[in-house]
Design a protein around this nucleic acid. Structure first.
Lengths: 277, 277
DNA sequence: CACAAAATAGAATAGATATTCTATCGCGTG
DNA sequence: CACGCGATAGAATATCTATTCTATTTTGTG
């Protein structure tokens, strides 16, 4: 039992919960996590509903409210409702207006404006992606990956995050993945075992990382089926590729967001699993 | 009694009420006016409360709901509640509904459909990002990074792509970066040189990578200024952090797009350079 | 390992809820 | 002016609600 039983804002409540989370025990922690993740459910639901959704008995919800200093669930719920009501008026118009306003305010030098710029850049990159990728390529790529024994991933330099992300997702889904990162030796050695039974996903954008440009033709020569993700048909990983995804309008390295390729590789991985079973 | 008892948007309901207003009788008109003027009260209140505030007996409220084609007050109230939650996060409900629905349909199994699903997921994640990040936090983070001698990056498991991307961009801009990847030994050793003169950017989402949870408190204890990017205030990298960016509604690991954190770290890096010269 | 303390789940309960029912009222019509 | 019809309000009701209580389990400790 604590003092903050007085009128409390939602943000204050969040802070309190975060602080005291560790001190709470088992069940209460579980509820704390659910409550922070689903504030709307708490605002609108009944004790029974919240209890069911969070997987705890109703009485535990009440104990949780007590532990936070409220007289009961209803009292705590009021805070969550205030949050809903508070955010209703200024939501759409004000938020958008603020974004537009700040965007032009100090000409993009303030961090917030920079974020807005990158967000809208990313938005349009996504639109472009969904327009430029065709079903035929996706299906072909999926077919290749389905037949592959091991999947080799080649993405260095600025593309490395994309490769690691794809590696992570594919491994989560139970696929055999070899991430060619050049650690502890040359990537040539790492890729030495690749055969035509396997597959390669290569990712590279300007300026094309030298090692990528060097290794790619070798694997093609060894008849490893290849999926390329790049920004130009003139890139070194296009010639000989089985499938090419061209992602256009990539800004210069430091400014590119990688949003589009990240999205693409994830769709590849998940689509692979959904269509194979 | 009318048919529109089906799922109805708040705007549609408003139109219906306005149309039928004249046809309604006395009391019902009075209720109609109150309801249009105080939609929030209707969303959150009980029949008794709404009745009292609008100066009519409770049964009249129920009659009003019936007259609009609803089965009862509760049913009508649902429309008003949807309005409240509609303005908060464009992701949440629609996203979940769409995923649940398409995941099992034949449409959602084709690779192309999977791609467009991830694209729209990413879109809403970006919108949510620009709404949930505040200028104050961005400025604080920028200040920390500006003063830092070396910038340590901690992002393992599913967050590793984000960390590598940030490392890449920061190095391109000429900053001294230490990427804590645990290669060739423990990350403890890698981070041993970090002091209060440096800075740490930690990135972690559920399920929080154990090494991250273990290392973070150590660096905080050594008074290293810390910027955390995570999905919950209860994550192990929140306690003691100088700045926390909370990115909500992160799907399960295999399905998350990383689009939002990727965008955020890039804005951080670029914003850092733009505001420091 | 035994004990005490805390936490938990599930049943019990007191209260509130939306809805229905019925007697009454207002009002236009024959 | 009496009649009939619809609207109304208030009481009755059955459902659902939050909360409390208690037996049981789990946890920490000597």
């Amino acid at each position: 039992m604590n003092k903050p039983s007085g009128p409390m804002s939602y943000d204050e409540l969040r802070g309190t919960i975060a602080q005291r989370h560790r001190a709470l025990s088992g069940r209460l922690q579980q509820i704390a996590e659910f409550v922070l993740d689903h504030p709307t459910d708490v605002a609108l639901g009944t004790v029974a509903e919240v209890a069911q959704r969070s997987g705890v008995p109703p009485s535990a919800i009440v104990r949780f409210a007590h532990a936070l200093g409220f007289g009961g669930f209803t009292e705590m719920q009021q805070v969550f409702r205030n949050r809903l009501v508070a955010g209703e008026a200024p939501s759409y118009k004000a938020r958008l207006a603020r974004m537009k306003g700040e965007e032009k305010s100090v000409l993009g030098r303030k961090p917030m404006a920079v974020l807005s710029r990158f967000v809208s850049e990313a938005q349009s990159a996504l639109v472009t992606l969904s327009q430029s990728v065709h079903a035929r390529e996706l299906d072909a790529a999926t077919a290749i990956l389905t037949k592959a024994r091991d999947i080799y991933l080649l993405g260095l330099g600025g593309s490395f995050p994309v490769a690691t992300h794809l590696a992570y997702v594919l491994r989560k889904l139970g696929h055999r993945v070899v991430l060619l990162d050049g650690i502890g030796g040359s990537i040539h050695e790492q890729s030495h075992a690749a055969t035509s039974e396997d597959a390669l996903v290569a990712i590279s954008f300007r300026n094309y990382y030298p090692d990528t440009a060097r290794l790619f033709p070798e694997l093609v020569a060894r008849r490893v089926p290849t999926i390329s993700i790049t920004d130009s048909l003139l890139s070194p990983i296009v010639q000989g590729a089985s499938v090419v995804f061209e992602i256009q309008d990539m800004p210069e390295p430091a400014l590119r967001t990688l949003v589009a390729p990240m999205c693409l590789v994830q769709a590849l991985a998940i689509g692979l699993d959904l269509s194979s079973d």
